[in-house]
Design a protein around this nucleic acid. Structure first.
Lengths: 200, 200
DNA sequence: GATGGCGGGTGACAGTTGTCATCGCCAAGG
DNA sequence: CCTTGGCGATGACAACTGTCACCCGCCATC
C-alpha cells in the first residue's frame, strides 16, 4: 500500500485527482491540502510515502515544499504535477531532490504509474522536458532578474530604481544587458522570454 | 441518466475529472476531447445532454464551442469549467448561452451538482464571479484591443502598424487612448490590466 | 603595491513612446 | 445640403528607452 498526500490549490482538480487515484487499489490517500502551509504540516504529521504537489500555490510553493523535505531529511518522496513546462522549474525541482515531475497535459494513466515507480525508489520525469532542461541555462544575473521582474509589471526605469535603491541609469544598464543576453529587442520581449523559460 | 461530454486539453485533468464524475451513478460520460475541433465533432455526433468544457484549448476555445452550439440550436447545454475568474469571460459565456460557469478552485462536490442543475434546465454560475461581472464593462474598442494584444507581445508601434495596416502614428494614438481609458501609465500596465479582466 | 574583476553610476545620443491638437474622409441623420 | 461622428493620419513635443563608452570604489589575489 502506497500512502500519499495531495497538495493542489484548485479544489476541482484536487478532488478529481483524488478520485482518479482512488481507483487504484494499491494507493491510499492519507490527506489533501489546498496550500503549501497545510501541506507542509501534513507531511510532517502523516509521514506519507509520496507527496503529489502542484508548483504554484498560495503561500509555500511546491518547489519550496520539496526543499524543506530535503533539508529535514524526511522519507517522503515528492512528485511535482504542474501546468508549466519550464526548464527552469524542472532544474530547481531536481536540485530540491524531487523524484517525479509530470505535466498536467500528460495522459492520466501515467500518474499512478509514476507514484509506483517513485515509491520503488525510481524517478518519473517528463521525457520531453528532461531533454529541454539539458539545454540552455539561465544567463541572467540576480540583478537582471529583479529588474526584469519589475519591468514586467509595467514599472518604468525610475520606479524600478526607487524600489531597488539603484540609480535610474543603472537600471537601464541592467535592462539593456538582459535584453542583449536574451537576444530580443525590448523589455517586454525580454520579460516574456525569461518568464516562459521559468527564469523569472 | 445524464449523458455528458468532456472537453479539456490537459490530459491529467481530463482523466481526473472523468474519474470524479464516474463516481456519480446518474452521470454517463459519452466521450472526451483534448481540443475544440474534436469536441465540436463529438457534440454533433453524440448529442450529449451536457458539454463540460474548459475555455483555453488549442484550436477552438470553449467560448467558441458554446457560440456554435447556440447558433446551430443544438439541445446540448454547456458548463464552462475554467481557471480564469475573469468577468469578461463570464460575460461572453453568458452571451453565448452557457448554462454553467464554474471555477477550477471551487470545491469538487459542486461539479456533479452543477451538471444536474443544468440538465434540469437551471443555471450554475459561480456566485462571486457573477457579482463582479455586473461591475465594469470592457471600455476598449476593437482596434484598441487588437493593438493592445500585439503590444503585449513586445511589438513596437512600427511592427504593430505593419500587421494591422495602419500608420505608426495611429497605432500610438490607439495605445494612448487605451492607456488613458484604463487609467494606467504605459502599454505594459494597460496590457496586463486588460488581460487580467478578460478583455484581451 | 599593482592588477583586475565586479557592482554600480554618469553622460550623451538616437530611437521609441505617450500626448495633444488638428485634419481629411466618408457615412449616416437631420 | 449641412452637420455630426467615427476612423485614420500628421506633426510636434516631452518623456522614456536602449546603447555605449567610461568612471569610481572596493575586494581579492598575485
Amino acid at each position: 500500500m502506497i500512502r500519499f498526500l495531495l497538495a493542489e490549490d484548485q479544489g476541482l482538480v484536487r478532488g478529481a485527482l483524488a478520485a482518479l487515484l482512488a481507483m487504484e487499489n494499491d494507493l491510499e490517500l492519507v490527506g489533501s491540502a489546498a496550500d503549501g502551509e497545510h501541506a507542509w504540516r501534513m507531511v510532517r504529521e502523516l509521514q506519507p510515502d509520496v507527496l503529489v504537489t502542484d508548483i504554484e500555490m498560495p503561500g509555500i510553493t511546491g518547489l519550496e515544499l520539496a526543499q524543506r523535505i530535503q533539508r529535514h531529511e524526511l522519507p517522503t518522496r515528492v512528485v511535482i504535477v504542474t501546468t508549466f513546462a519550464r526548464a527552469g522549474y524542472l532544474r530547481r525541482a531536481l536540485d530540491a531532490g524531487v523524484s517525479g515531475y509530470l505535466l498536467k497535459d500528460a495522459p492520466a494513466e501515467q500518474l499512478a504509474d509514476a507514484l509506483r515507480r517513485v515509491h520503488r525508489g525510481g524517478r518519473a520525469i517528463d521525457p520531453e522536458l528532461a531533454l529541454e532542461a539539458w539545454g540552455e541555462a539561465d544567463p541572467l544575473s540576480d540583478r537582471e532578474r529583479q529588474v526584469l521582474r519589475l519591468a514586467g509589471e509595467g514599472l518604468g526605469a525610475g520606479d524600478i530604481a526607487e524600489r531597488l535603491n539603484l540609480s535610474h541609469g543603472t537600471v537601464r544598464n541592467y535592462l539593456s544587458e538582459a535584453i542583449n543576453k536574451l537576444g530580443v529587442s525590448n523589455r517586454i520581449e525580454a520579460y516574456r522570454l525569461a518568464h516562459q523559460k521559468g527564469w523569472l
